[in-house]
Design a protein around this nucleic acid. Structure first.
Length: 591
RNA sequence: GGCCCAGUGGUACAGUUGGUUAGCACGCCGCCCUGUCACGGCGGAGGUCGAGGGUUCGAGUCCCUUCUGGGUCGCCA
């Protein structure tokens, strides 16, 4: 008999019916003359019952069952009467088994297949196929599939075409490191795996496809993090004849649609927007977590001629002085304050000045001895400090002061437990700087990418004040995490040339790297722009996971290897020879 | 590349100032058990304490090196 139902499709509406289920043995409970087996498939659990009414041969097979055997069981659905298991979706029924087949036996697994397992990551990943049997992992991958489907339906309804772009492409050394693939036919030449389909989607706009999307793998050869994998999936899209407003409003509808359809969560539109400069000054981050307040306060002007040389030097060098009121940390011990100072230092601040106001109004501080009482009062007023508060101050280069204090803001929120984990707080960050200065390369580099359009009103100052030019670039952030980002692209020759000039490319270099795009733009290019979302991160946040690995079927570990397959690995000398490659041995070379 | 954390039967943990035979729970194996559902009862197997070196009369514990994994800074246009 073939399977008729998934485990949790069996319910009390079909009591008395003959059904067949298949799955893995979750547990057996042998009571002697009576025996229960919980069978598991991707839908959930169902209890099989064997007793005096059971055929002797069937009972004997049931006695042989062990955890994770794969079985097929047929029988009659019956009520459990009063013995209901309320923690089980199918807890009010069971199957009176009439036929049982062991399809496959199983050795004892290296870890138990249970929800919320505490097994260490490396073991989980070595036996990923077992880890993926766990209900929480199945829930995540099912959610992922639903989200992808929901995205596709929404975009198709809105006139988008799904078009694939190549995986074997040309290396573009701007930005992240590329994964390279050696060419056999062209020894010494390499393809690069795409960091994103950026240029191809822009070419599709030139070709007139008007609205493109793709759920697509991208590759970046950089160090991993909890929310970063070397290969990851983007929801990538591009639209023609649009400006920033069109992209933003369509995409917030997309997000609203997906969250409603897959999580039944309502996202209120329009989503709040913050210009980059404001995000940095209020939250110290370009991906602010706005689930809690604790905003930064700038006190640079207040500290003019304050008498404290550290602050005055910073002001002379056009830095900023920013403060954060860690409300309720006034009684923190010195050790814990030092730990906070260290957080600031980890993010590049040279130091963190602090002023602690105890419950009884007495003060402790690392710096107020250098200041006049009215200056101290000014700081307290500006940060609305009260008894029982702790004020943290960082004086540094503007971005360092803001970023480091932004990191402290998150740390303080964590310690004070200010974050509501059930909330989804979206925010668009807009008006990013077009360029940032790369101290090492001694030149400006594109903050987003070299095809990002400057804001119309800033084009005039591209040559005179490049550092102040804002871009038509926008990121969508959720709970302090960058979900995705995009921009309106440059489609006018003059602007693109200005941009390359700012980046220090001469015409030759520009053509060498992006010639096919620049040539394409000679033949009629529509105004266009787009966005790309990190699908993995989106699912991670939706599933409330701490790591992106928990929403990817077969992820890599920290050093970008795979404990299950042992990739990357050495290859045969014949393969190398065909590719014209020689391995130069180094300390790190794998034997 | 830097910093921080972890590694003890299959799994998750405990292990005091360095001191008997390294504990516990779950899992596993055997026997018993007719309403279990994290079944229960009785019995049992299973450990080079990640690896190497050092200090010591004596190391799971202290020191050094190294491996594995996690977090993070740099990096990620």
């Amino acid at each position: 008999m073939k399977r008729t139902h998934y485990c949790t499709e069996v319910d009390n509406t079909i009591i008395g019916q003959q059904i067949t289920v298949t799955g893995w043995v979750q547990r057996r409970r042998n009571l002697g003359q009576l025996l229960f087996v919980t069978v598991r498939d991707r839908s959930g659990l169902l209890q099989l019952a064997f007793g005096e009414q059971t055929d002797k041969k069937v009972f004997e097979i049931a006695e042989k069952l062990r955890t994770e055997f794969v079985i097929q069981a047929s029988g009659i659905v019956r009520s459990r009467g009063a013995d209901v298991n309320k923690s089980m979706a199918t807890g009010d029924i069971e199957i009176d088994v009439t036929e049982l087949i062991i399809l496959s036996e199983a050795e004892t697994t290296p870890f138990e297949i249970v929800e919320n397992s505490d097994v260490k990551d490396d073991l989980r990943l070595k036996y990923r196929y077992l880890d993926l049997r766990r209900p929480d992992m199945q829930k995540n991958l099912i959610l992922r599939s639903k989200v992808a489907g929901s995205v596709r339906r929404f975009l198709e309804q809105n006139g988008f075409l799904e078009i694939e772009t190549p995986m074997l492409t040309k290396s573009t050394p701007e930005g992240a490191r590329d994964y390279l693939v050696p060419s056999r036919i062209h020894p010494g030449n390499f393809y690069a795996l795409p960091q994103s389909p950026q240029i191809f989607k822009q070419l599709l706009m030139v070709s007139g496809y008007d609205r493109y999307f793709q759920i697509v793998k991208c590759f970046r050869d950089e160090d991993l993090r909890a929310d970063r994998q070397p290969e990851f999936t983007q929801i990538d899209m591009e639209m023609s004849f649009v400006d920033q407003e069109d992209v933003i409003s369509l995409n917030e509808k997309l997000v609203q649609h997906v969250f409603k359809e897959t999580l039944n969560v309502d996202v209120t539109l329009p989503i709040k927007r913050l210009p980059y400069a404001e995000a940095m000054s209020r939250y110290g981050s370009d991906k602010p977590d706005i689930r809690f307040d604790l905003e930064l306060v700038e006190i640079t002007t207040e500290m003019h001629q304050c008498g404290f040389s550290v602050f005055e030097t910073i002001i002379e060098n056009k830095g900023k002085i920013c403060a954060l009121n860690a409300k309720g940390m006034g009684e923190l011990g010195r050790k814990q304050i030092d730990a906070l100072v260290k957080v600031g230092q980890d993010y590049g601040a040279k130091g963190v000045a602090w002023l602690q106001i105890k419950q009884d109004g007495s003060e402790k501080s690392s710096f107020t001895k250098f200041l006049q009482p009215d200056t101290i009062q000014l700081i307290k007023d500006k940060t609305s400090a009260q008894n029982g508060d702790l004020i943290l101050i960082i004086a540094d280069k503007a971005t360092v002061a803001q970023t480091a204090l932004g990191a402290l803001r998150l740390e303080v929120a964590k310690r004070l437990d200010l974050i509501n984990k059930d909330e989804f707080k979206f925010v668009w960050v807009t008006d990013f700087p077009l360029l940032e200065y790369d101290e090492e390369a001694n030149r400006y580099v594109a903050m987003h990418h070299p095809f990002t359009m400057p804001k119309d009103e800033d084009i005039a100052i591209m040559e005179t004040e490049p550092q102040n030019v804002r871009a038509k670039a926008y990121d969508l952030c959720l709970n302090g995490c960058e979900l995705g980002g995009g921009s309106i692209r440059i489609y006018q020759h003059e602007v693109q040339e200005k941009m390359f000039k700012l980046l220090g490319f001469d015409k030759e270099t520009a053509y060498e790297r992006f010639g096919f795009l620049l040539n394409a733009f000679k033949y009629g290019v529509p105004p266009h722009g787009g966005i790309a979302f990190g699908l993995d991160r989106m699912i991670m946040l939706m599933a409330k996971c701490d790591s992106i690995r928990d929403v990817i079927a077969f992820p890599k570990v920290k050093d970008a290897s795979c404990p299950m397959t042992d990739a990357p690995d050495v290859v045969d000398n014949i393969q190398l020879k065909e590719l014209g490659l020689n391995i130069v041995a180094t300390e790190k070379t794998k034997e």
